[in-house]
Nucleic acid binder design. Sequence first.
DNA 1: AATGCCTGTAACTATTATAATTACACCTTT
DNA 2: AAAGGTGTAATTATAATAGTTACAGGCATT
Lengths: 146, 146
Amino acid sequence: MRVNTRFTVAIHILVLVALNDAHPATSEMMAESVGSHPVVIRQVMSLLKKAGLVETKNGLPGGRLSKPQEEITLCDIYQAVKNSEESVIFDVHQNPNPKCPVGCNIVSALDAPILHAQDAMENALKDYTLKDITTYIVEKYSQQNK
Amino acid sequence: MRVNTRFTVAIHILVLVALNDAHPATSEMMAESVGSHPVVIRQVMSLLKKAGLVETKNGLPGGRLSKPQEEITLCDIYQAVKNSEESVIFDVHQNPNPKCPVGCNIVSALDAPILHAQDAMENALKDYTLKDITTYIVEKYSQQNK
DNA sequence: AATGCCTGTAACTATTATAATTACACCTTT
DNA sequence: AAAGGTGTAATTATAATAGTTACAGGCATT
């Protein structure tokens, strides 16, 4: 698997939880759907839980959404799984020369633009809710089985 | 140094080129300002050259901008240094289970939102030009030396 | 209350992207 | 021709992150 997939894995998990019809899926079953490892599922689930998007009970398989699907945006999910390292899309190079007029000011010069880009990205993610994703998947699937 | 810093290194280089006052900087000098290795500078420079943002002559130190600073947006720079891998902010998990209704459709379900977020980010980068960055740096530096 | 199945999480390993570096052919100026 | 630079391929080192192991603890069924 590639890097940085926690975000899409989180969406995948939430779709499974949302569509879960009374058959609580274990982390092992979810891992099979996602194509990953049960512990990865539990780790991501833990982040989603901390963010208040999902509720689980220790020892019991599955979980359920804390809010209606329509109220969970992809931005909420993104913020749930991002860590502080990733909190900004771009990393600024670490060791610019403080003795150079450019080197000593490049980092602060880039603050605003990078934040602006980050905000724009997160706002764009607010245009989609979990409901949009589940709806797409359910419709696509029913077409495929027509 | 951290990952993914090509973008900010590229900006740093272009600022040096833009502010370069008749003293062509070698890749070694630039590397000292950036806090990196001369070859990294040449590699990034090569990408900027391919993107038509900068002109250099083999064998000769330094280079010069192909366009006025006002016409080079941070988006232009971003697109110059991104590779196809990074062309999308988020990687989708690679092995969703094709036998699962969710697994077989999650990737295409995420296409639109991810592209939307990517576009929003790139558009936000268009709000800043190289001129904005150099102006900020020059002003900040002159304040510091008042 | 005991067993079995599950979660939660810490800790470790493997993988992989990317920065750093080495090496060298080729260009330019003196 | 010599010195000093670029361009780029190839290799190594580093670090982020996915995968995995291990295990303590919760819950339900018996």
